[in-house]
Amino acid sequence: MTETAIEVTALEHFFGDGEARKQALFDVNLAVARGSLTVLMGPSGSGKTTLLTLMGCLREVHAGSVRLLDRELFQSDEISRIDMRRRLGFIFQAHNLHDSLTARQNVMMGLQVHGRGDPKRHALAADHLLDLLGLGQRLDYLPGNLSGGQKQRVAIARALASNPDIIFADEPTAALDKVSGLAAVRLFKDLGRARGTTTVMVTHDPRILDLADRVVTLEDGRIVEDRAGTARNNASTAPA
């Protein structure tokens, strides 16, 4: 039986109050299997980012239910959401690296969120991840001295450093060339297979669709299409 990492039921979300109140999500239902790679697609303003932030414990759930790793987020308090976020990894389109920390130190922050630890072991883990992402020669570079693609890879390493249960990513390959982008997504896939890490990403990159297990399309705050991705189709049609 497939384990469910995220279960969204009858989710609705609003922005603003009174007459300015605007509904962003309408009766969204979604179940994401553990270890899968799910792509959220849709035009600008369709609600995919709002859905991502709600599933990522970055917003309060107003109505409906979001169960994340078997914990209900509706009516959860801020402390619970912060604790839950420590089990998640975030990759932002704007990498948001700390400009005064080196690549290694930025990745170490992903480990230090869990409290005091051995700085040497943290540094070794960060070095390993950065090396895996092809940045072994840029460990001590400040973000200002890295290219856009390199920064994004550091951000990916930071998100992966704490061995998260779920990765939420917003256009993680936008700044990467074809080879690097595919390598990064394959890394997510490998983590899904090896560790059961679930990945949910917003992307417009058609190359990613080939690797996705599932593609969910939103329009005007509603899921209008929910289909198996090419990877799943290929897997299911592959000869035994």
């Binding site: 990522g56 970055l58 912060i82 604790d83 839950m84 976020r85 420590r86 998640l88 975030f90 932002f92 704007a94 948001n96 690296l97 700390h98 400009d99 922050m109 992903g110 969120v113 704490s162």
Partner: peptide
């Protein structure tokens, strides 16, 4: 100047 970085740390779960 570092508001986005701090927001990122918040997202990561720093208290």
């Amino acid at each position: 100047d570092h508001i986005r970085e701090y927001a990122t740390f918040k997202a990561m779960g720093f208290r």
